[in-house]
């Protein structure tokens, strides 16, 4: 594909106006919409969706925070205001299937919205990418960009322990033909990046060390030059950790979607 290719990003409103229905709604999330670093992940994922010809749509400006950080901080009122509002929008469009690149949105939409009247099939983009690979819709050419490079995957709490998604992101990384190395604490024992439970939105309590530094040290100890993440908050925490260790020149933090897009030269 050439650089001047334009991509389609249809909204639910446009689709509804044309009497169309997408296969899947891409829930972008606040970080995916506003965080400069994670916007790149959103763009990479949209490019992949375009490339494989998935009929998708986004909510655009109709999307709103799922309420995850409010609920974890203890503000149940605010969470439910957000949730009920979002469910009205989603149900209004008759949404059935949602994919999101944020494990926090994923967990909330999947596990916490049903009790409030929002029943959807929700999958994380790592699972979605795995399905595309399994279906042969994404075929990555081996021996490409990643040949011989070491990648380590950081498990996100809300993907792993919370929802037992451990293998999908790893299977996606396996197809890159890179050398996938595990940190000492991985899968069920994966160490949090320090951002969950609304910690991202305040200073940490006094302690000896920041959690993201502890985790980054573990990632660096694998000798990987790429830390793969699947969460916008892990992305920031690990990137800051790498900077803290003055390794930003040699070690990069990428989301799964970016790695797949890179392998595809998108």
């Amino acid at each position: 594909m050439t650089a001047d290719t334009t991509y389609k990003v249809p909204t639910m409103a446009e689709m509804a106006a044309n009497g169309e229905e997408p296969e899947v709604l891409f829930w972008v999330g606040c970080a995916g919409s506003f965080d400069d670093r994670y916007k790149k992940v959103t763009v990479a994922f949209v490019k992949i969706l375009n490339q494989v010809g998935v009929k998708f749509a986004v909510l655009g400006t109709e999307e709103s925070c799922t309420g995850d950080p409010a609920r974890r901080a203890g503000n149940e009122f605010l969470f439910q205001m957000q949730a009920v509002g979002n469910i009205q929008v989603l149900n209004g469009y008759g949404v059935k299937k949602i994919v999101t690149a944020c494990p926090h949105c994923f967990n909330t939409l999947k596990n916490e919205y049903p009790e409030l009247g929002g029943q959807y099939e929700v999958i994380h983009h790592s699972q979605f990418l795995q399905q595309l690979i399994d279906a042969g819709k994404i075929t990555l050419k081996g021996g490409g960009t990643f040949k011989g490079r070491r990648i380590t995957f950081h498990d996100s709490c809300y993907l792993g322990r919370a929802n037992k998604v451990y293998e999908a992101p790893r299977e996606v990384l396996q197809t890159l033909d890179a050398d996938l190395v595990e940190m000492k604490r991985c899968r069920t024992k994966g160490l949090c990046c320090g951002a969950g439970g609304a910690q991202y939105f305040k200073e940490p309590e006094p302690g000896r060390k920041d959690i993201n530094v502890e985790r980054t040290e573990e990632a660096l100890a694998t000798g990987a030059d790429t830390i793969a993440v699947a969460c916008p908050f892990c992305m920031t925490m690990m990137t800051d950790g790498v900077k803290n260790k003055d390794r930003e020149d040699s070690v990069k933090v990428y989301d799964l979607a970016e790695l797949v897009a890179q392998a595809y030269s998108l």
Binding site: R72, L191, G194, G196, G197, Q199
Partner: peptide, 11 residues
């Protein structure tokens, strides 16, 4: 306030 809700304790 220090909890990251990572569920490692539950696990």
């Amino acid at each position: 306030n220090a909890c990251t809700t990572c569920q490692a304790c539950v696990q």
